[in-house]
Design a protein around this nucleic acid. Structure first.
Length: 593
RNA sequence: GGGGUCGUAGUUCAGUUGGUUAGAAUGCCGGCCUGUCACGCCGGAUGUCGCCGGUUCGAGCCCGGUCGGCCCCGCCA
């Protein structure tokens, strides 16, 4: 840089700076060489400033500017001048002025970038990730990282102001049963033993409460070795919190405040707490999912009572055999084509539906439908009335086991909303989902599984039911859902050893296994554990929604591909035999030639 | 583990029924150009059609396999 030192960013000069001599540093975004005068759009993290090289002012500097190319790194000294005549560019924050260059220092040259940084061309994900450092130079990507920083700052400030301590917990910890697949780290000093990377700091934050820290938080990486999705990465970040001597209401209140502060600092929006609430049972009944998107209607309506005894054998048999029949009314969708309906049927089938019955509402309550003929006039009228259907509506039916019907209709209403463009990105619709069941029966494993995790407290009045009727026990858990995405979840925890053992027993984890896997927690519960509870938010998903991104990758600096690889570093990679030997690992697969 | 979709110039894409020398835009290189802002004009260079195999007189195109990207199901307490 020689003696040059940056005086301003490329976004902060305006008419008020005219006449000042400044030094800017940044990258060449575009070059417009007129043979005589040369214009350079200089870009840094903050914005763009136009630099002018005029041969009549500094001939030598102008000659040097002639060789500039995309993404060369420059230091430019010059005078801020008003753009002449009507040459101001209203599209630029700095468009009223330009820098008349008197000195140009080329800090580095660059090869032609593998993809353009100055256009809105969709570049393939592999290439973007392989050259992520170039991808992140693009203003939209930089903006995402900047807004993520603001979010994290807002959270830290808010939690500090509310008495929380930021405390780190180990990354090398032990594998615990249940939950997602662990990432394992072999121990060199302990032959044949493994650490696991944390799926969350759950047990440590509870131990910090037992340690008397009272209010803890951490913005922390978590690891789950499961398949990836547009909103799922194997390593992701949680805003993790835990509080002592509180109930659900206090946790909800403090986190609503945190989310409010976060939206104010990032988007300057008031999300207006308190947020809506819905019970788990209501969410499933009305929306078919425990993370309802309530930005639109199409609510699910139960028809099992009508179906039982109706003329349509398929519905009747399912209703009489303990299944359910439910439907949604897609208002004003009777114009859907045969192909639309075929596509939606195919969509429903992938969630386990055996088909998708539909009815197009014609004038005077008349049905146009392949199944119309199976119903009596009275039955049709009753269904029409129950669904509030009028001319131009389109009805969809689900008839199957409850879980299948709920999922199919839940996904279907979301798909309808996508097709009808009802999902406005700037409409932030929060809802707390409460009163979850503590556990549900796993048909494959033939045992109960915790819906949240095994440390979630059951409701006091349900503790006695743990042994005889585990399925009827409700928990003290709560999830925060934003636009159909679960962005946070937590619970009041168990702080009594006898209750913890009962819950573990109901989950078919006997005392011996419990002692082996969570002995340290059980012991801690014997030594003055205070009542406590907490919550964790998925920062990446939250940022995805706040920035309107379609993938979690767009709010993570160095994300992984769907096969969990990193095209930039080419991780994961092979290691030497020596490294494996040191770790007491002996691969039994054949090395590829 | 399963379903879908994509892979052609540096980039984004087109490529007909299998038929001569694989195109467009943009970028890149050179020239001209003193007020552009996606500058303009003239000229030029640029291909492992992801990879392997098959069918065929002939394959970017058809078939089989494989690798990779993305989306989804399962999975994600």
């Amino acid at each position: 840089m020689g003696s040059l030192r940056r005086t301003h960013s490329c976004n902060d000069l305006g008419t008020g700076n005219v006449g000042e001599e400044v030094v800017l540093m940044g990258w060449v975004l575009r070059r417009r060489d007129h043979g005589g005068v040369i214009f350079i759009d200089l870009r840094d993290r903050h914005g763009l400033t136009q630099i002018v090289f005029n041969p009549a002012i500094e001939e030598e500097v102008h000659a040097k500017a002639h060789q500039l190319r995309s993404e060369w790194v420059l230091a430019v000294r010059g005078k801020v001048v008003l753009r002449p005549g009507d040459m101001a560019n209203p599209k630029l924050a700095t468009g009223a002025i330009e820098i008349l260059a008197s000195e140009l220092r080329i800090l580095n040259t660059s090869e032609t970038p593998p993809f353009p940084l100055d256009e809105e061309v969709e570049v393939s994900d592999t290439l973007r990730l392989q050259y992520r450092y170039l991808d992140l130079r693009r203003p939209e990507m930089a903006a995402n990282l900047i807004i993520r920083h603001k979010a994290v700052q807002a959270v830290r400030t808010y939690l500090h102001d509310h008495g929380f301590l930021e405390i780190e917990t180990p990354m090398l910890t032990r594998s615990t049963p249940e939950g997602a697949r662990d990432y394992l780290v072999p121990s060199r000093v302990n032959a044949g033993k493994f650490y696991a990377l944390p799926q969350s700091p759950q047990l440590f934050k509870q131990l910090l409460m037992i340690a008397g820290m009272e209010r803890y938080y951490q913005i922390v990486k978590c690891f789950r070795d499961e398949d990836l999705r547009a909103d799922r990465q194997p390593e992701f970040t949680q805003i993790d919190m835990e509080l002592s001597f509180v109930d659900e209401e206090q946790i909800i209140k403090v986190t609503e405040g945190m989310i409010t502060s976060l939206f104010r600092e990032t988007r300057d929006l008031d999300v207006a707490p308190p947020f809506k609430r819905i019970t788990y049972d209501q969410a499933i009944a009305r929306f078919g999912t425990d993370r309802p998107d309530m930005r639109f209607g199409f609510e699910i309506v139960d028809l099992t009572g009508i179906a039982s005894g109706c003329g349509f054998k398929v519905f009747r048999d399912i209703a009489d055999a303990g299944g359910i029949v439910r439907a949604i009314n897609a208002n004003n969708c009777a114009g859907f084509s045969r192909k639309d309906l075929d596509d939606l049927t195919e969509f429903a089938v992938q969630f386990g539906a055996k088909g998708l019955a539909w009815v197009k509402m014609k004038a005077a309550g008349e049905w146009q439908s392949p199944i119309a003929k199976f119903f009596s006039e009275e039955e049709r009228a009753e269904i029409t009335r129950t669904l509030g259907a009028t001319e131009g509506d389109l009805l969809f039916f689900g008839a199957d086991k409850p879980a299948v019907v709920c999922q199919v209709l839940g996904e279907l209403r979301a798909e309808l909303a996508r097709r009808l463009d009802l999902l406005k990105k700037d409409n932030f619709n929060f809802v707390w989902v409460t009163d979850f069941p503590l556990m549900e029966y796993d048909e494959k494993e033939k045992r109960f599984q915790a819906l949240h995790h095994p440390f979630t407290a059951p409701r006091d009045e349900d503790i006695d039911s743990l042994e005889k009727d585990p399925a009827s026990v409700y928990s003290r858990a709560y999830d925060l859902v934003l636009n159909g995405t679960e962005i946070g979840g937590g619970s009041i925890r168990i702080h009594r050893k006898d209750v913890q053992l009962k819950v573990l027993k109901a989950l078919s984890i006997g005392e011996e296994e419990a002692r082996d896997k969570f002995g340290f927690l059980l012991r801690a519960l014997e030594l003055g554990a205070p009542p406590h509870g907490g919550i964790a938010f998925g920062l990446d998903r939250l940022m995805m929604i706040i920035t309107g991104s379609s993938s979690i990758r767009d709010v993570i600096a160095f994300p992984k591909t769907q096969k969990a690889t990193c095209p930039l570093t080419e991780a994961p990679a092979s290691v030497s035999r020596k490294q494996l030997t040191e770790l007491y690992l002996r691969p039994d697969w054949k090395e590829k030639e």
